[in-house]
Every structure is written in structure tokens, then in C-alpha cells.
Amino acid sequence: MKQHTVTDSPYGPLTLVAEDGVLCGLYMSGQRHRPPEETFGVRDARPFTEAEEQLEAYFAGDLKDFTLALRLDGTPFQRAVWGRLREIPYGETRTYGELAEALGNPTASRAVGLANGRNPIGIVVPCHRVIGASGSLTGYGGGLERKKRLLDHERGTEEATLFQAPARTAP
């Protein structure tokens, strides 16, 4: 059974989706590859207490590693890429090529980029930490401005006033 809720964040509303109580989606408004709303299930905030608390701590700068149970549905290659994303330390970045090399296929940077763009659990699975070979901010489903702000937040270079704890929405 799928459930969802919408919670506020410094980056706009975030839609959290769970299947059988396990987080399987975190989508920003206007996000590329965002599934249709009708696939999110019933609106019910109950499964998301821990996710909202961890997101609140992350936005406040108090949490660097999420410890949520996740359900990442995708191809074996996509899941491998998403697993590598979770290994990128807070405040650091990797290139698509570095991820491809870490996966044992140094010529697969384009495929890594495609898998990165299909990440269903943004922020928690930190696809925003992947940059182009030149260090440029290339591609981000939530938009390059959000990507820059997330990276600046993690590096402590964005104004603290932008990162007040998000308000929780009622169930």
C-alpha cells in the first residue's frame, strides 16, 4: 500500500512517498522524472515521522547521514549507482566518471548520469553531489539552482537564514 505526504522545506514542498511504510520517493515540485500524483497512494503523514525529523535536522545543519530505511526500485545498474551516491560524504562531490570507475566501468559515465537523474529519493540519496568532469553543476532533476543551494548548504556557504527548520504539514 502506498502513502504520501507533502512537507515544507527550504527548497519548496517535498512529496514523500512510502510503500508498506518504507520511504520509496522524495520528489521536489517541478522535478524532472517526477511520477504522476495518482501513483503516490493515499495521503497519510503517519509513515513519515522519522523521515520528516531527519530532513528537518539535515536542513538545520545537524544531520549529515540519513539512517532511513529505503526502498529503491530500479534496474540493478540504477540501484548500484544509487548505492554509490549514498557513499559520497556530506559536503563532497564526485564526477559521473568517478562513479563509473567506482562501479568498475570507467566508460559508463553517461549511463551513470541517466541513472542519477532517475533517483527516486532525492536529498536522502544525494544525487546533488554529482558534478561534471570540469567541476560544473550539470543536470539535476530538481533544477540547477536547487543543486547549487544544496551543495552550498552542505559546505556551509549559504546564508543560515535560508535553512530554518521546515514546517510540518498536517496529515
Rank of each mutant, 00 (worst) to 15 (best):
Val22Lys: 10
Val22Cys: 04
Leu23Lys: 11
Cys24Ser: 12
Cys24Gln: 12
Gly25Phe: 01
Leu26Gly: 02
Tyr27Pro: 00
Tyr27Gly: 05
Tyr27Asp: 02
Ser29His: 11
Ser29Leu: 12
Ser29Pro: 00
Gly30Phe: 04
Gln31Gly: 08
Arg32Met: 09
His33Leu: 09
Pro35Cys: 10
Pro36Trp: 05
Pro36Cys: 03
Glu37Thr: 15
Glu37Met: 13
Glu37Tyr: 09
Glu38His: 11
Glu38Ala: 13
Glu38Tyr: 14
Glu38Ser: 12
Thr39Met: 06
Thr39Lys: 08
Phe40Ser: 07
Arg43Lys: 15
Asp44Trp: 13
Ala45Cys: 10
Ala45Gln: 11
Arg46Ile: 05
Phe48Trp: 11
Phe48Arg: 07
Thr49Ser: 12
Thr49Glu: 12
Thr49Arg: 10
Thr49Ile: 04
Ala51Val: 12
Ala51Phe: 03
Glu52His: 03
Glu52Tyr: 00
Glu52Met: 14
Glu52Phe: 07
Glu53Lys: 12
Glu53Arg: 14
Glu56Ile: 10
Ala57Val: 01
Ala57Glu: 13
Ala57Phe: 07
Phe59His: 06
Phe59Trp: 13
Phe59Lys: 02
Ala60Leu: 15
Leu63Pro: 02
Leu63Phe: 01
Lys64Gln: 15
Asp65Val: 15
Phe66Ile: 09
Phe66Ser: 05
Phe66Met: 09
Phe66Thr: 01
Leu68Ala: 03
Leu68Lys: 06
Leu70Gln: 09
Leu70Asn: 10
Gly74Lys: 08
Gly74Glu: 01
Thr75Met: 05
Thr75Val: 02
Pro76Met: 14
Phe77Thr: 04
Gln78Gly: 04
Val81Gln: 12
Val81Thr: 07
Gly83Pro: 04
Arg84Asn: 04
Arg86Phe: 07
Ile88Cys: 05
Pro89Cys: 13
Glu92Leu: 03
Arg94Met: 11
Thr95His: 06
Tyr96Glu: 08
Tyr96Ala: 15
Glu98Met: 09
Glu98Ile: 07
Leu99Pro: 03
Leu99Gln: 05
Ala100His: 02
Ala100Gly: 05
Glu101Tyr: 06
Glu101Arg: 06
Leu103Pro: 04
Leu103Cys: 04
Gly104Glu: 12
Gly104Asn: 03
Asn105Leu: 04
Asn105Asp: 14
Pro106Leu: 05
Pro106Ala: 13
Pro106Lys: 10
Thr107Glu: 13
Thr107Pro: 00
Thr107Ala: 10
Ala108Met: 06
Ser109Trp: 14
Ser109Leu: 03
Arg110Tyr: 12
Ala111Gln: 13
Ala111Leu: 07
Gly113Pro: 12
Gly113Ile: 08
Gly113Ala: 08
Leu114Asn: 06
Leu114Met: 13
Leu114Trp: 09
Asn116Trp: 08
Asn119Ala: 11
Asn119Met: 09
Asn119Thr: 12
Asn119His: 01
Ile121Ala: 01
Gly122Ser: 14
Gly122Tyr: 00
Gly122Lys: 07
Ile123Trp: 00
Ile123Tyr: 05
Val124Met: 01
Val124Thr: 06
Val125Glu: 10
Val125Tyr: 02
Cys127Met: 05
Cys127Asp: 15
Cys127Tyr: 06
His128Arg: 02
His128Glu: 08
Val130Glu: 05
Ile131Val: 15
Ile131Ser: 08
Gly132Asn: 10
Gly135Pro: 11
Gly135His: 08
